[in-house]
Write a protein that binds this DNA or RNA. Structure first.
Lengths: 210, 210
DNA sequence: TTGTATATGTAACCATTGTTACTGATGGAT
DNA sequence: ATCCATCAGTAACAATGGTTACATATACAA
């Protein structure tokens, strides 16, 4: 565990903090597709992502959903942090996009370290900052862009976080994450294929030149 | 200043902290309509809102804009906090919705107090939590609701923060804040008027029964 | 009063997105 | 091979929102 911590967080956390994390943290391995947090869950700890990618989604009351952003190595879930403190229910859903490894920190430590370690404070604040900005980017996309642009951005981002040139999803799955309909997504994907930007296959999409 | 601090924050801040705030904070009165932060500004301090309402807007590169949320008494701007720390440019625009009074805190104190006062830590975290949730509400609205619902929500919220039953804006101004067009807003407002929910006048809208 | 700038009302039209319905393609499982 | 579930392609249509264009209303200044 200590090695993985150093790899992902070594530059920002001092040794004493890393030592403490090792003492109280629990290491977890999560398979791709695992549902980590559901809307309404109470959250019991704060995750430090050591490898892999977690996707964070918003659900509304009618079962509609929308992809908010991805968490990557070195990230933590700010939503979680605030939920912990207030003992509030989660407003979001989190699912492992790839196999992932993470270290869970008990809530009380999180509070304690904020007073004790400057590097932890910086980490927490920076994390909030990143999450706020990613939410703003998502909001921009939904508010200011048309579906074709959103789809292209989605494909690019998904390929980036998975470090692949193909997207392994059905059109229906993509439609859910963009809060659109399967027919619309198929239509737009077909248009992208005709422009030579992607190649469509059953269950996956090959990116040629986006 | 100390009285206004106690009125707005007395319950959550201990006396020692209030004393420190009084020492280093500068009191400011802002007239309605005053542009407090522009996109790209570097931010020099953290505001504690003592009275009045501040509206926070997102601008995109094409001059499009979108209302994100209102800050009310007892709130602070989380965006500002993170910007301060990283010396990062602002991603948002802030304008006084009403006359407002606030206390500006120098950045370095903010860091110091986070280590020193538990109540300050709670305040900062709670503030982040509130802002994240308000962003989510805005995102829900944009992603899941149609313009007519968004308009109704907008009118209600605007009336609430201003503590009035009328909205003093032109249709064009409303259109900007919802990122729509004047014609669309006029159309939907007319529909609401025909339903007996509002009354339209030049430069203001009377809320009857929303 | 008259002129002018601004605000609002409305119609006609277009683009985008969503819906319904159906077809064909694909890839296992038996 | 045959069956079956799932996935993708497509057409026709509806709904929403955005655009253009013009008419009318209002407030205020000269």
């Amino acid at each position: 565990m200590i090695q993985e911590l150093r790899d992902s967080y070594g530059n920002q956390f001092e040794d004493a903090l890393i030592y403490e994390i090792v003492q109280v943290g629990t290491f977890k391995e999560i398979p791709a597709g695992f549902k980590m947090i559901e809307v309404g869950d109470y959250i019991k700890g704060m995750p430090l992502l050591v490898s892999g990618v977690i996707k964070v989604l918003r659900d509304d009351k009618d079962g509609d959903e929308l992809l908010l952003y991805y968490l990557e190595t070195g990230d933590t879930c700010s939503m979680t942090m605030t939920c912990c403190i207030g003992e509030v229910k989660s407003e979001i859903r989190a699912i492992a996009e790839t196999d992932a490894k993470l270290i869970m920190i008990p809530i009380r430590k999180m509070e304690e370290w904020t007073a004790k370690y400057k590097s932890w404070r910086n980490f927490v604040f920076e994390s909030y900052h990143n999450r706020l900005n990613e939410l703003l980017v998502t909001l921009d996309s939904v508010a200011f862009n048309k579906m074709d642009e959103r789809l292209v951005d989605y494909l690019k981002e998904k390929a980036r976080v998975n470090n692949e040139t193909s997207i392994h999803n059905t059109h229906q799955e993509i439609a859910y994450e963009l809060h659109s309909s399967r027919v619309v997504i198929s239509r737009l994907l077909k248009k992208l294929e005709k422009l030579g930007k992607i190649e469509l296959h059953r269950n996956y999409i090959e990116i040629i030149n986006l």
